[in-house]
Simulated scan of single mutants.
Amino acid sequence: MINTYNESNLHKTLKILYAQKHNGTTEIPFKNFIADIIDEKGNIIEIQTGAPSRLKEKVRVALENKTEITIVHPVALEKIIETYDENKKLVSKRKSPKRCSVYSALDGLTGLAPFLSDRKFTVIFLEVIICEQRIKTAEPVQLKNKSRHFKKAWYKTGKKLLEIKGENVFNGKKSWLSLIPHELLKGEFSSKDVREKLDKASSSYANVLLWLLFHGGLINFIRTEGRFKIYSIKK
C-alpha cells in the first residue's frame, strides 16, 4: 500500500493517513479531551502507538456519549533499526529479530476489556513494517523517563512508517472470539488447549487472551482442573 513515508513520527504519519482515508479533521476537542481524528460522520479515531489501554478514559467518555470510537494500533511485523552516530551519520542498519502480532499486542489491551462487546468500540491492529532510528552514544545512558533497568549506549529518536501490510479489525463479540481456534468454540477449553492449537509464536499469549475475553464478558469460567481454568463461550 505504501512503499515509504518520510515522516519522522509514526503517530503523526498514521494520523494524516487515517484523516485522509475517512475525510476527517485532526486535533478536535471532544468533551474533556482532544480527539486525534473526528471523521465526517462524527466518529472518533485515535492513533495509539503505545499500549491501547492508555486510552481507557477517552473510550469511556466516547461510549457514554453514544459516539463510536476506533483505536488504530500499529503492530510491527518487521522492524528495521538504523543507528546513527552523534553527528547523524548512519553507522549500522539491521533487521530486529523481534516480530509482533495481534496476539502479542493483547497485553496492551487489558484495560479496555470492559468495552470489547460494545459495537461502538473498534480496535484496528495495523500490520506494519517500521524503521526505528537510534543515536549511538559514547557511554551507556539512562533515558529521561528513567525507564531502563540497565543503561545502554544508544537512545531512540523516532520511528518511521515504511509499509502497511494490512488491517485486522475487531468490533463486537464474534470478532474477538475469532482469536480462539475455531475447533474449541463449541465446547469447554483451557489455556493449555488454546496454546496447543495456536502457532508457536502466538501460543505464549494464550493466558492473556483468555483473561481479556473473560473480563470482557465474552467467555464463562466453568471450573478449575489441576493448574488450569476451564472456560466456555458465553451464549
Rank of each mutant, 00 (worst) to 15 (best):
I81N: 14
K88P: 04
H22A: 08
I69S: 00
R148Y: 05
I80W: 12
K151S: 13
A138F: 12
H182F: 14
K79E: 15
T70Y: 02
S101T: 04
K21A: 11
L116M: 02
E196Q: 13
K136T: 09
K88V: 06
D118Y: 01
E167H: 07
R223A: 08
N145T: 05
K144Y: 10
I230C: 06
P74V: 03
L112Q: 02
T110M: 12
I47P: 02
H73F: 00
L209S: 02
Y84E: 01
E40P: 00
K31Q: 13
S178H: 11
H22W: 12
R134H: 14
E167L: 09
L161G: 05
P29R: 09
K120A: 11
K41H: 10
L63F: 00
L14Q: 04
P74Q: 03
L63G: 00
V128E: 09
M1C: 09
A153C: 06
S175R: 13
I16K: 14
S204V: 09
F115S: 06
N9A: 08
K56H: 14
V208D: 05
G108R: 09
I180D: 03
A35E: 08
L198Y: 05
I28S: 01
N3M: 14
K160N: 12
Q48V: 03
I37F: 10
G166C: 02
V123W: 04
P74R: 06
I45H: 07
R54S: 15
S232P: 06
K12D: 15
S202W: 07
Q133R: 15
L14Y: 05
Q133W: 10
V128R: 02
E188I: 11
I28Y: 01
D36F: 09
T137M: 09
L213V: 06
L63C: 01
K160T: 15
Q48K: 03
K144W: 11
V102W: 01
K160G: 05
L218D: 09
E86N: 10
A76M: 10
Y84G: 01
N87G: 12
V72W: 02
L116V: 02
A19Y: 09
K159A: 14
V61G: 09
R99H: 13
V72H: 00
F121S: 01
D85M: 05
E46M: 07
V61T: 15
V75Y: 02
L126I: 07
S117K: 14
R134F: 15
E7F: 13
C100T: 13
I222G: 01
K31I: 11
I44T: 11
A62V: 07
N87W: 12
S178C: 10
L161Y: 04
T122M: 03
S202F: 02
E57N: 13
P52F: 00
Y205P: 01
R134V: 13
F150C: 07
L55D: 14
G42W: 08
I71C: 08
I47Y: 01
F125I: 04
D107C: 14
L116Y: 00
K234Y: 05
Q20W: 12
E196L: 12
P114V: 05
V128S: 03
I130N: 04
V102K: 00
K144G: 07
R223N: 13
I230W: 04
R195E: 12
E64Q: 13
E64M: 13
E7T: 11
R223H: 07
T13G: 08
K192T: 12
L55P: 10
N207W: 02
T137N: 04
D36E: 09
I71G: 03
N9P: 07
W211L: 14
